[in-house]
């Protein structure tokens, strides 16, 4: 049974939860995803390197990131690093943890996407005089992007929801705001439902963006 005051409670919570979304969840997602993409590209290129030690460093990195819980990675950076003398605030701690995590997972997406571009493309680029970096930037990555969008969207959408873990290290994001609003009233069901609604809307918007981007990148492919 919901209490009589539920509609009012929902109305009163919309503001604070929106604030948690706009000031916490969204910037945390955007910063971590952007950083994660850069890291993913670096790790993927290292993994594809013909220099064995370089490729092994990348392999180990991906293995550690994928083989340990994200919550634990978050705790190591926020609660663990201070004992090594590095104290970092909650929000930057969360950004670092999520960036490192996305970087590990997304590097495999980037690697697969790069490998999906036929070898002849890089050869043709070489014959018109391009070096490694130019070939990557002008020829390989634009084609790899098309392949990477669906799995990368998965990574981004997962990240949106994973940022809720940051509530455990005092980051005032969406879930934390819902907890704060629910605590004095014990209306956990209602407030968590509102929070769920917010997450879902963000992910819906991202799904639309994904479809739009896929259509755009498909324009040079025979249908």
């Amino acid at each position: 049974m919901l209490a009589d005051g539920t509609p009012g409670l929902v109305r009163d919570s919309l503001g604070p939860l929106l604030e948690g979304t706009v000031k916490g969840t969204i910037p945390l997602t955007l910063i971590s995803f952007a950083g994660g993409l850069v890291l993913a590209l670096i790790v993927a290129l290292m993994r594809l390197s013909p220099v064995t030690p370089v490729s092994w460093i990348a392999r180990c990195y991906v293995s550690v990131i994928r083989g340990t819980p994200l919550l634990l990675q978050l705790f190591i950076i926020y609660y663990g690093l201070p004992s090594l003398g590095a104290t970092i605030d909650p929000f930057p701690s969360a950004c670092i943890a999520f960036t490192l995590n996305v970087g590990g997972y997304a590097s495999e997406v980037v690697r697969a996407a790069i490998l999906s571009v036929p070898k002849g493309q890089a050869e043709a680029a070489a014959t018109v005089g391009m070096d490694y970096v130019t070939t990557l930037r002008r020829i390989v990555l634009p084609q790899a992007a098309r392949v990477a969008v669906p799995p990368m969207s998965n990574t981004l959408i997962s990240l949106v929801k994973d940022t809720s873990l940051a509530s455990t290290i005092q980051v005032t994001e969406l879930l934390r705001k819902a907890q704060e609003a629910a605590a004095p009233t014990y209306e956990f069901f209602t407030l968590y439902a509102v929070a769920a609604g917010y997450y879902w809307v963000i992910c819906l918007v991202l799904s639309f963006a994904q479809t739009h981007l896929e259509t755009r990148l498909d324009r040079y492919v025979a249908s």
Binding site: G120, A124, T127, I139, Y220
Partner: peptide
């Protein structure tokens, strides 16, 4: 490589351009 132009069996045109 800069001395010669190469035409491939499978053309290898850049599909996104």
């Amino acid at each position: 490589r800069a001395q010669s132009g190469m035409v491939f069996q499978s053309h290898n045109l850049f599909p996104h351009l």
